[in-house]
């Protein structure tokens, strides 16, 4: 309810004025950014395990950016986001594996998957247009479960619970993308592109419509925003990003099965954006890093792992209910702070 929420609607130029004046803060930010860049560059020199963890984080960053459009920008709680992830993963898996005997190239499947994802988003969007809050949450949750159960039950097409095996490697213009390190670069580029698109969208006229819906749906309708269109656009675009993440996931793991698309995954993605900071792309990066690194660090604690993870989650949210990176501190603010001397 409370909190600095109007930033979403503010013009990019004007944010510079409210940027931190303090030189120390600015230097800290610069140091932080430098650290991030160094980490990104150093990842390839680490063990394969570390690269694989980085890949996982980047896939969830992608998912987080996608879900953030619906949850963060438009203010609609979606607990079934994993459905779109599944649509993308299964599209790639079925069109590029021995399962159906199809082996289409990656660049052909990608647009198919993204379009299918978008259609699935609209399919979900229609029945939930009138719903709000937790009614929306439970219907989206149901949608996610329906997609998973359908995949699990349609044995003849999807091979049911056994999943689709031996999925093709990505082959683009003679380059094979198969090792974790190849995926690291692919994901890094994809995440960068998608993040820029999402950021531009947030600042676009459509993004302002979303912000208006988030703040007050009826007022938004009152000032002439086509809320139906804006909501459907949010669902479709976020679903496309989810589907894109699914395609890369399927090609990376080269095996997909329904158990990868459980409700827990949906909840994890929501957690990522909330712990990171709702409505903020920077927050998605932070949230995904925290929520995927923590379990890895705790992995050696076997059974205690989930206990610690759960408690840490609760403590984190109680201490920082706005997320680690507040909504007001978006990428524009970061850039502005860095630019000022």
């Amino acid at each position: 309810m409370a909190g600095p929420s109007t930033d979403g609607a503010r013009a990019p130029g004007s944010t510079a004025e409210s940027a931190p004046e303090n030189a120390m803060v600015r230097n800290a930010l610069r140091a932080g950014l430098l650290l991030v860049v160094i980490t990104l560059v150093l990842v390839p020199f680490q063990s394969t395990y570390a690269v694989r963890v980085a890949d996982s984080i980047l896939i969830y960053v992608l998912l987080g950016i996608g879900l953030n459009i619906v949850v963060g920008y438009t203010g609609l709680l979606d607990l079934g986001f994993v459905a779109f992830y599944a649509v993308g993963a299964y599209t790639y898996a079925l069109l590029a594996s021995p399962q159906l005997g199809l082996h289409l190239p990656f660049l052909v499947i990608l647009p198919i998957a993204v379009i299918l994802g978008g259609l699935a988003g609209i399919l979900l969007g229609f029945p939930v247009l009138r719903l709000r809050g937790d009614y929306l949450a439970i219907v989206t949750l149901g949608f996610g479960e329906i997609i998973r159960v359908l995949i699990n039950n349609a044995d003849t097409v999807t091979n049911g619970p056994r999943g689709v095996m031996r999925i093709d490697r990505i082959d683009v213009a003679g380059f094979t993308i198969s090792r974790p390190i190849d995926f690291y670069w692919l994901l890094l580029v994809t995440v960068a592109i998608v993040a820029v698109i999402a950021f531009r969208l947030e600042k676009s006229i459509l993004g302002k419509g979303w912000a208006a819906i988030r703040e007050d749906q009826d007022a938004a309708r009152g000032i002439g925003i086509d809320t139906t269109k804006a909501k459907l656009a949010a669902f479709a675009i976020s679903a496309m990003i989810g589907s894109l993440a699914g395609v890369i996931f399927a090609a990376f793991q080269r095996f997909v099965s329904p158990e990868s698309f459980s409700l827990q995954e949906s909840i994890l993605i929501v957690l990522i954006i909330v712990i990171g900071g709702v409505g903020n792309i920077l927050g998605v990066f932070v949230g995904a890093t925290v929520l995927l690194l923590l379990p890895e660090i705790l992995r050696d604690y076997a059974e205690l792992r989930m206990l610690l993870l759960g408690l840490l989650m609760a403590v984190l949210i109680v201490l920082r209910p706005q997320g680690l990176v507040p909504r007001s501190f978006g990428p524009d603010r970061l850039l502005a702070a860095l630019r000022r001397r």
Partner: peptide, 8 residues
């Protein structure tokens, strides 16, 4: 090591 029965 715990894999939570999750392929990923």
């Amino acid at each position: 090591l715990d894999d939570k029965a999750d392929p990923r």
